[in-house]
């Protein structure tokens, strides 16, 4: 039931408008959540308790690749929204799939990274620093994983129903979510990895 045609499809119904506002507020809560995780990390980052410090285990090249994958996925996600605005189902699905592939690549790299750390003897149980490191990174990774599952469900719905006010709204909301995860990653990259390497 599209009422106002001057607005994008995802804003065309009152319920959609409310869902999107609700999701923005949810992202506000997510900012508090990640801020708290970061605060915990900053408190504990120096407490390595005979375990390795960040610069001893971080592999800069892999982190750069992860960053590249995730930032690019944010760009392709925008392209998906652009295709949605042009009412191009095929383009929308294609770019969503590309976004997911990049996200999967990121996740693969991150899991490998974690396995590598564990082999080096750097586990959740090693020190306060590593507990907070794995929890912060793990929470972000879990968000990415959930996003991938969510996007899969969405692609099925778009394929079945095309671009309707409901699917458009859902796509728009997941794009907000995906960009948000990218923003969090920029903070992780800067304050965990770059800072960790020079400390």
């Amino acid at each position: 039931m599209a009422t106002e045609t001057s607005l994008p499809l995802e804003y065309s119904t009152k319920q959609n408008e409310m869902n999107i506002l609700g999701f923005w507020i949810f992202l506000g809560a997510e900012i508090v959540l990640f801020s708290t995780l970061f605060a915990g990390y900053f408190v504990l980052e120096g407490n390595t308790a005979n375990g390795p410090a960040g610069h001893e285990i971080f592999i800069f090249k892999d982190v750069m690749i992860q960053t590249f994958l995730l930032l690019t996925s944010s760009f392709t996600c925008s392209l998906a929204i652009y295709q949605m605005r042009n009412n191009n189902v095929k383009g929308l699905i294609t770019w969503l799939v590309v976004t997911m592939a990049l996200g999967l690549g990121f996740l693969y790299m991150e899991i490998n990274e974690f396995i590598h750390y564990v082999h080096e003897g750097a586990t959740l149980q090693t020190s306060g620093f590593l507990s907070s490191f794995f929890t912060l990174l793990g929470t972000h990774g879990l968000h990415v994983t959930l996003g991938l599952g969510w996007a899969t469900l969405l692609i099925i719905q778009i394929a079945r129903r095309g671009i309707t006010p409901v699917t458009a709204r859902k796509t728009f909301i997941i794009s907000l979510y995906w960009h948000f995860l990218d923003v969090v990653w920029i903070f992780i990259f800067t304050f965990v990895y770059l800072r960790g390497l020079v400390m």
Binding site: G40, L44, T126, S127, G128, T135
Partner: peptide, 21 residues
């Protein structure tokens, strides 16, 4: 979540011995 990590999975957010606070 920190508490759960400490109690269930042996993390060290709050245990002084391994650098927790």
């Amino acid at each position: 979540a920190f508490m759960t990590m400490d109690r269930l999975f042996g993390a060290h957010f709050f245990t002084v011995a391994a650098g927790g606070d």
